[in-house]
Simulated assay, not measured.
Amino acid sequence: RRRTFGYERAELIGAFVNLVTLIVIALYLLVETGQRFFNPGEIKGRLMLIVGAITLAGNVATAFVLYRPSKGSLNVESAFVHIVADALGSVAVILGGWLIASYGWTVVDPMLTAAIAIYILAHSYGMLRETISILMESAPKSFPLDEMTETLEAMDHVCDVHHVHVWRLDEEQTAMEAHVEVEDIDALDQLDALKKKVKRKLRADYGVDHATLELEHGACTDDHRQQQPRRAQAPVAY
């Protein structure tokens, strides 16, 4: 009963942990790369080829399974990136093993490791920012907040919209709460009809899945938060 939103953000927490782990691994690989450049150890090229080929087969199969689900979930996408990074590591092991076994180019090993680490960092950073943004209850990127407010205020019987908060429950669901000051209507059925009309507008035009609206007559009584200033209106000529 305490989790009134259910487990909508459980996947986001999993994605956050997975992405942080990937970034830590990538940084560790970069440190290892620097050490191998200056202190290269003995590398068995043939063994690298065998191990790399076996690992690559498993990674490709797993990536194939996760590819389609990764399009709709940050958690699955982070797991997919993890598998792709492992697959690239296997390719690097195979390529490095062949070059070392054939030509003795041991410098290839740290170079390929650095390339994989950079790939992991580049892909993980963007997804980590997106995950943190949702966990911090930010509005969707490029959400037209001012435009939405102006559109609602242009509706019949709506004279002001304030205390507007828009956030995401997960990658797909957007929620909103706002105070809507109304005029010229008092009957409950009219107020209910106006609320339904506003919610339909929010869902159809702005993708708001769940809206909580507080209808008000007159000045806002919610004093514990600073009220958003109204936009100045042009004077009416008589």
Rank of each mutant, 00 (worst) to 15 (best):
Q35Y: 08
A53E: 00
V31H: 07
A53R: 02
I25S: 13
A15Y: 13
G41H: 01
Y28S: 11
T21G: 15
I54T: 11
T33K: 10
A10V: 14
V60W: 01
Q35V: 05
G52N: 05
G52Q: 07
G14P: 15
I43M: 03
T21P: 05
G14C: 11
F64T: 10
A61S: 12
L22C: 11
A53N: 01
G14F: 13
V51S: 03
F64C: 14
L12G: 07
T55V: 12
L19S: 13
T55F: 05
L49H: 00
T62M: 10
R36Y: 02
L29M: 14
T55M: 12
A61E: 03
V60A: 12
L30E: 10
I25R: 06
A15W: 13
I25F: 15
A57H: 05
A15L: 11
A53F: 02
T33D: 08
L22H: 09
K44G: 01
F37C: 09
F37I: 12
E11I: 07
G45E: 00
N39F: 07
R46Y: 06
A10L: 11
E42L: 06
G45V: 08
E32R: 11
L22T: 06
I43Q: 02
I23W: 03
E11R: 14
I54Y: 08
E32K: 08
G41N: 04
G52C: 04
L49N: 07
T33A: 15
L22R: 10
E11A: 15
E32P: 00
F16T: 11
E32D: 08
Y28W: 09
N59M: 09
M48H: 06
F38A: 08
Q35C: 04
F37A: 08
A57E: 06
A15P: 15
I13P: 12
G14V: 11
P40N: 05
L30Y: 01
E11D: 15
L12C: 10
I43R: 04
I25W: 15
I25L: 15
L19F: 14
I13A: 02
F64E: 06
L27I: 14
G34S: 04
G41R: 01
T55H: 04
A26L: 05
R46Q: 12
E32Q: 13
K44F: 03
P40F: 00
A53V: 07
A10F: 09
V17P: 15
T62F: 04
I25K: 08
Y28C: 09
L56S: 03
E32C: 02
T21V: 13
E42Y: 10
F37K: 06
A10I: 10
I23S: 10
T33C: 15
V24E: 05
I54C: 08
L47Q: 06
T62E: 05
I25N: 13
N18E: 15
P40T: 01
L30M: 13
G45D: 01
L30N: 03
I54D: 09
F38V: 10
L56P: 01
I54S: 09
I54N: 09
G41M: 10
A53G: 05
V31G: 07
A63Y: 11
M48F: 00
G52S: 02
E42G: 04
V20H: 03
A26Y: 03
A57P: 01
R46P: 02
G34F: 10
A57K: 05
Q35H: 11
Q35S: 07
T21I: 09
F37H: 08
G41L: 07
L22P: 13
L27N: 12
I50Y: 07
